[in-house]
Design a protein around this nucleic acid. Sequence first.
DNA 1: TCATGGGTATACCTGGAAGGCATGGCCTGA
DNA 2: TCAGGCCATGCCTTCCAGGTATACCCATGA
Lengths: 299, 299
Amino acid sequence: MRQVELRHLRYFVAVAEAGSMMAGARAVGIVQPALSRQIRELEEAIGTPLLVRRSTGVALTAAGASFLRDATRILTELQASRDRALRSAAGQLGELRLGVLPNYFPLPVVSDVLKAFRDTCPDVMLSIAPRLSSEQAAAIARGELDGGIMAWRQDVAPHLSGLRLLRDRFVLAMLSTPGQRVRAPRRLAELAGAPFIWFDPLRSSAQHRFLLEQCRRAGFTPRIAQVGSDIPTLIGLVAAGMGYAFVPESTSPMCPRTVRLVALDELASRFDVEFVYDGQADSPVVRRFLAALRTTVSA
Amino acid sequence: MRQVELRHLRYFVAVAEAGSMMAGARAVGIVQPALSRQIRELEEAIGTPLLVRRSTGVALTAAGASFLRDATRILTELQASRDRALRSAAGQLGELRLGVLPNYFPLPVVSDVLKAFRDTCPDVMLSIAPRLSSEQAAAIARGELDGGIMAWRQDVAPHLSGLRLLRDRFVLAMLSTPGQRVRAPRRLAELAGAPFIWFDPLRSSAQHRFLLEQCRRAGFTPRIAQVGSDIPTLIGLVAAGMGYAFVPESTSPMCPRTVRLVALDELASRFDVEFVYDGQADSPVVRRFLAALRTTVSA
DNA sequence: TCATGGGTATACCTGGAAGGCATGGCCTGA
DNA sequence: TCAGGCCATGCCTTCCAGGTATACCCATGA
């Protein structure tokens, strides 16, 4: 048995709406005998008459009325499918799964770009998961995330593309009790032997290696008194007087007044906080996000 | 621009599911170059690439993933549309709008046939409207009802087809106070001058004419003391001692004990209570209902 | 009752598109 | 660097959608 084609549906709808083969043929731009044959073919494919032929035109059978509703809907759905495909290609439809390094979530540039993206692409479903840089890199490689905001991309994901959001650097976080005046160290070497609250080296190995290397160059190995897995923990421990910590300068807004951030010469070299994505994947939604990001960063 | 055809959708789905043009071509039973061309045509019709060609096969673009979902759905919907059309043609899907003469609603044969129909055609939406015979006939002619259960079809709708449910006749309803012994009339002529509660002649002109004619033949014109629009009203007025009434014998179950029904020789001629429908319309659902009706009546 | 006209079906033909075949180019992996 | 998949291109054949002419059917009205 021959297959039903959309042509059959288009013709059938035209005939049903026009009320006659003649008028339907005129509507679709073919001649009546050709249309009659196509309708007959459709009826054979469906397996039941859809029209009753009268000398005054055609009338729908019960099956025809049912099929007319369905055919009309299918035709409009095809049109909608095309529109959705085009919007998907333009990055205006779909989803964007992002990872964000938790300590950078509160940054204005992050919330700004998310807002800008939501404004330009309101129909893209945006999902944001807090993840460490290395976890993000792995998820992006596996296709489970479309991109993420992280630091130290060149260490954890050299094969992925990145667009810089900002440049950050490490500063020393130290206790600064209001009444008590404590001299801030100027050079790293002054901290030899001092107790440190350290990044969890397993979870943030890139920063770990960088900071260890800086201390080694300053001639000492830091005495690690505590380990913290995230920035608020580190800062909390500093505020509790447990020791010093190295934290990204951009996290200063979340420091209490009793914690003072001190820039050290040896830690002057900055590192990038980037939006990282798979440049090979060529996702239209990611392209849209990159555009939103560029305008936000340059503004 | 060429039109999209279902062939394109079938091919595209096959390719997407198979992961390569080669395998997709095998799946749909054509050779790979032919398939490649059809896919390209589809992409041109949609207006954006749906696949990325790799040497290992093909991968979906974002637009392709969107269109794949839609195309799959459209294809299954077409299948469902065909099924619905066939079920509509078989009278197993659709709606059946019936009118029922209110006094015949309580009859066992009516509820039996409705139940039988609902059992054989559970997916047909059944709507039942209480209507007088003449209203039913007009509504059926206008296509607002598919059929109805009425009396006096030959008077109100001679052009419509009918299938008899039962034969009824008129009897005299009269007051019969328990203690008081009243002689029942045997002949219509005995009722000359007696007060009658009469059918509303505007609403039930066929019965009106029949009963008037019988009285005229018996040599008198009934004295109409009251007019009632429905059977319960008539019976209620008889029970209230307002006079005599002619009611269909089949309505006896709804008479109180104080109302006695008396058969008169002149009213012996019976009339049909029929399921009435438009025999020209050839509705599958009505055919199903007729089948249910025939088995119910013969049982 | 017959002519007329609007509508549909049938027969036949033609052009174009779908599909088959052969082949070339490209990428990948051994 | 070669072999093997995979996709694209070019050409040919077949088949079918659509066009033309005409017959048929039925309702309407003179």
